[in-house]
């Protein structure tokens, strides 16, 4: 299988919260994002910009008031076979989850069952999806822990006995035990301090290397994206406004929002006075017309308030900004 194989292809997806009384929160608006095999793609953006909603949409975890209005989400079910996630039967969808796509929701340290030992939680997943006997399941779980450099002793612990960092690694080990092709990890380290955070992302990198797993890593921490992601997508007010190779985006941000965000990050050793972006992110119930960033954009032009800039492609970079119209 070529390294360039797509495992996820999400095209022009629009998903809104329909709250009645004509109120509609445009949390995901015409978003396209693809992930290749073994790739760690970062998703960054301010609180409330739609990151979690996009993850839910990609996992088809869609319940009212959230509704998918248009778009296609395709997943690689087997080598060389892309399936449309939204056309699958419930039974097929259940089978795809855990084995093809796995989701680690935001605040997931609480998904561990507090009253049962880690051992039983692993065995349960294994038996549910793997259809193997208990002793065989336990053997495979132990092998996996060893491969990931986790101590076997965690199996005898209850979740609350583990440190936050160890609990989060356990959650990730559980989510990847069936070797899914892609894992959606929503803020997996935001409750952790830097040392534990680093331990968790090192494990994510190890899983990627050992099993070729792809990840979408949602985080508002730009430093984390710089350290671990291969590509980064920036979301602003329900839209993806820039996508590119992480190193390129950090060294040369093209969208004015990305530029403002990256320039406002404090650097150790730096002595420059930093200014945040002015203004506030817009309400998604009533986003501004045209470019959604225009009220805060230092470069806005007349056209920006009228017409929405499309996501334009420049080599392996994509940017939605009128400044770049006709460039390259």
């Amino acid at each position: 299988m070529s390294v360039n194989t797509l495992v996820l292809d999400c095209r022009n997806v629009t998903a809104h919260y329909e709250l009645g009384y004509g109120v509609r929160v445009r949390a995901v608006d015409n978003v396209s994002l693809s992930v290749r095999r073994g790739e760690i793609v970062g998703l960054a953006g301010e609180s409330g910009c739609g990151k979690t909603t996009l993850m839910r949409t990609i996992y088809r975890d869609v319940t009212p008031p959230l509704r998918v209005l248009s778009g296609v989400v395709r997943l690689q079910a087997t080598d060389g076979e892309m399936v449309d996630l939204y056309s699958l039967s419930e039974a097929r969808l259940r089978e795809m989850r855990a084995k093809v796509i796995s989701y680690i929701p935001q605040g997931s340290m609480s998904v561990l069952n507090p009253t049962s030992r880690i051992r039983s939680q692993f065995i349960e997943i294994f038996q549910k999806y793997g259809g193997v006997r208990k002793d065989e399941a336990l053997r495979q779980v132990k092998d996996r822990l060893r491969e990931l450099g986790l101590r076997e002793s965690i199996l005898n612990s209850y979740p609350h006995q583990l440190s936050g960092g160890m609990r989060q690694r356990t959650v990730i080990a559980l989510a990847t035990i069936m070797n899914p092709r892609i894992v959606l990890a929503d803020e997996p380290t935001s409750a952790l301090d830097v040392v534990y955070q680093r331990g968790v992302v090192e494990m994510i990198q190890k899983i990627r290397e050992m099993y070729g797993t792809s990840f979408i890593l949602v985080s508002h921490d730009m430093g984390l994206h710089y350290q671990v992601t291969d590509r980064i997508a920036l979301m602003y007010a329900g839209k993806i406004i820039e996508v590119g190779k992480t190193d390129d985006v950090f060294s040369e941000p093209l969208h004015p929002y990305t530029e403002g965000l990256i320039n406002s990050l404090p650097r150790i050793g730096g002595s420059k006075r930093l200014e945040g972006l002015s203004g506030l992110p817009p309400s998604l119930a009533n986003p501004p017309p045209g470019c959604r960033f225009h009220p805060r954009c230092p470069y806005r032009m007349e056209k920006c308030a009228r017409e929405e800039p499309p996501l334009l492609k420049f080599g392996d970079r994509e940017v939605a900004c009128w400044l770049l119209e006709g460039k390259k």
Binding site: R151, S157, S163, M166, V195, Y196, R198, G223, F250
Partner: peptide
């Protein structure tokens, strides 16, 4: 371990199992 935006991590960390 700071996820800096100007320099990448080198090496690996050791994390305590329990608090």
């Amino acid at each position: 371990s700071i996820p800096r935006v100007d320099r990448k991590w080198a090496g690996k960390v050791k994390v305590a199992v329990t608090e």
